[in-house]
Nucleic acid binder design. Structure first.
Lengths: 313, 313
DNA sequence: ATCGATCATGCACCCATTGTGCACGGTTCC
DNA sequence: GGAACCGTGCACAATGGGTGCATGATCGAT
């Protein structure tokens, strides 16, 4: 809808080299160079300077990139407005999410959405948060579902809009022979004396578990380390420790474990968000998908106290 | 800078037929048809309905056209911002105007602008007001200078921005042997008893003359009709009547005539405006050109009472 | 200091998108 | 009912844009 060369320029700004930008855009360096030269010629200004063997945007180039963001947003807004005029929800929405969101939110939503809006095609795509934003901006995907964690830091890119999906409780996973099996809504501090299964170093679930325990007022005693949820469940089932697992992780597939819901003052949980391109928030098709995801997320907390305070990182 | 198909859609909206739009855009009907079909397919909505053998935009189509205007304006704004970053005034500005504006404003400005901004290329182009706006929107010209008259009605197109250049006094042209020669600032009513040379039927200068006389309180007695200023001057020189001519018309080339300046309560005059594409008003190169035109226009009224009231149609 | 790696760019070539010409099926007006 | 007008589909051609390779320059490491 808008000049693709602007996106090229943005990539050059981001990477600092034409080659890097070309790679990111799946183009050849010579092609990118050619396009940008033509763009600069049309505008009558130099868009970047050569510093060493690299390249750096001039003030004019940066100004153009900045305006390009606004243009892209307004173009998305135009598309949304056009689609709003047709009362039927139709079109195609590619929804990406990390593996557990895919299983617990996206996959279940597809059938329900299809039965309600037959002209709507929802396509699921597994994608890590890190890969999701670039895919969003390149229009390969339309909606990226992800938890708010350290690995997916606050989405501050002005080209993205963030929609809230809901909060997902985090449960304590214990062996089926554990003393806490059958307990109802214990406080996390009650598991302070346990041995813990933690995520691998610098990994997502590890920092989540640690910060949850710290907020509860103790430092977990680590026994074993595992990254994949099935490995965690196996360790728990073998009575080698307890672990924190988000509600959406399907541990029922791994026998020998039992979930204990956590209550108390500030039970651990994580916020699930969905990112779209700025300006596309109001697309009707996107709206019904987001509503459906929110509806499914609500099931996580519907049988819990809705007044509990949420901790955003 | 933005999708050219949007401009095609706008043309279809304007003409009501694909063929007309194609002609206006110098394209073949089949090409336009193809592009619009592709655009509609991408958007997933019908952009126009077939009514009889003509075509009419759907609500979605109209919405898109509306947003396209905003997009085009913002794109112009981006270009202006980029050009503002370079302190040197450069680039190319195509200035169009009707014939007298060309001679009295545009042509004189070019030399002065070139001497002050060597990197700036100002290109003059003669164009009637009617043809100017389409040329402006198709980016064939950048600035259109025109008087505010009935033929060039109020420029209300949201894609245009109107800049004020100044007011041009209108003088009374009389034969060199006329009794009023040498008079200083007479009121127009003093010429009520004269015989008048009027413009051809339904032509610009005719309506201007008539409305000026009506405002002065009389109905001019028509003697002869002429459209070209040289013909008017010839008739006046032959003592066949008097006429109203704008200050910028070079009657000194036609011997045997004399100008009488008009004063009084509300002397006749016309406002000169310059149109640009919306969003391009702040382009630096355009700014210096407009300033220069204003400066030249100021010479018309510098030796007159600046407090006189202006009549806008 | 030298060699290799990295990078931007120009050039020749090639392919895809896009515009054109023409034919066909409808519609409108005389 | 015929003629003019209009939109669209199809085959073909041309322009634009992408790729691959060679070149010159720069940086880093040995």
């Amino acid at each position: 809808m808008i000049d693709p060369r602007l996106e090229l320029l943005r990539a050059v700004d981001e990477h600092g080299t034409v080659t890097g930008a070309a790679e990111a855009m799946s183009r050849s360096p010579s092609g990118v160079s050619r396009q940008l030269r033509e763009l600069a010629r049309e505008l009558g200004v130099a868009l970047f300077d050569h510093v060493g063997r690299r390249v750096q945007l001039t003030e004019a180039g940066r100004t153009l990139v900045q305006h390009a963001h606004q243009l892209a947003e307004q173009a998305e807004r135009a598309l949304a407005a056009v689609r709003t005029t047709t009362d039927e929800i139709s079109g195609q929405v590619v929804v990406a999410g990390h593996i557990t969101a895919l299983g617990s939110l996206i996959a279940p939503s597809i059938g329900r959405l299809h039965s309600r809006h037959s002209a709507l095609r929802v396509i699921a795509e597994e994608r890590q948060p890190r890969e999701a934003i670039p895919g969003l901006l390149s229009a390969a995907i339309d909606l990226a579902v992800m938890p708010v964690t350290a690995e997916a830091p606050a989405v501050t890119d002005p080209r993205c809009a963030v929609l809230d999906i809901g909060v997902e409780p985090i449960d304590l996973l214990v062996s089926q022979t554990h003393r806490l099996v059958g307990a109802d809504e214990i406080a996390l501090i009650e598991a302070a004396a346990e041995e813990w299964i933690l995520g691998s170093r610098e990994h997502d679930s590890r920092t989540e578990t640690l910060s949850a325990c710290h907020r509860a007022g103790f430092n977990p005693r680590p026994a074993h380390y595992a990254q994949d949820w099935s490995a965690v469940a196996a360790l728990v089932a073998a009575n080698l420790g307890v672990a924190l697992v988000p509600r959406s992780v399907p541990t029922q597939w791994y026998p020998g474990t039992s979930r204990v819901f956590l209550g108390g003052h500030a039970p651990p949980m994580r916020r699930i968000i969905a990112c779209t391109r700025a300006g596309a928030e109001d697309t009707p098709a996107l709206g019904v998908v987001v509503d459906e995801l929110r509806d499914l997320a609500r099931a996580w907390t519907s049988n819990q106290d809705p007044e509990m305070d949420i901790d955003m990182p």
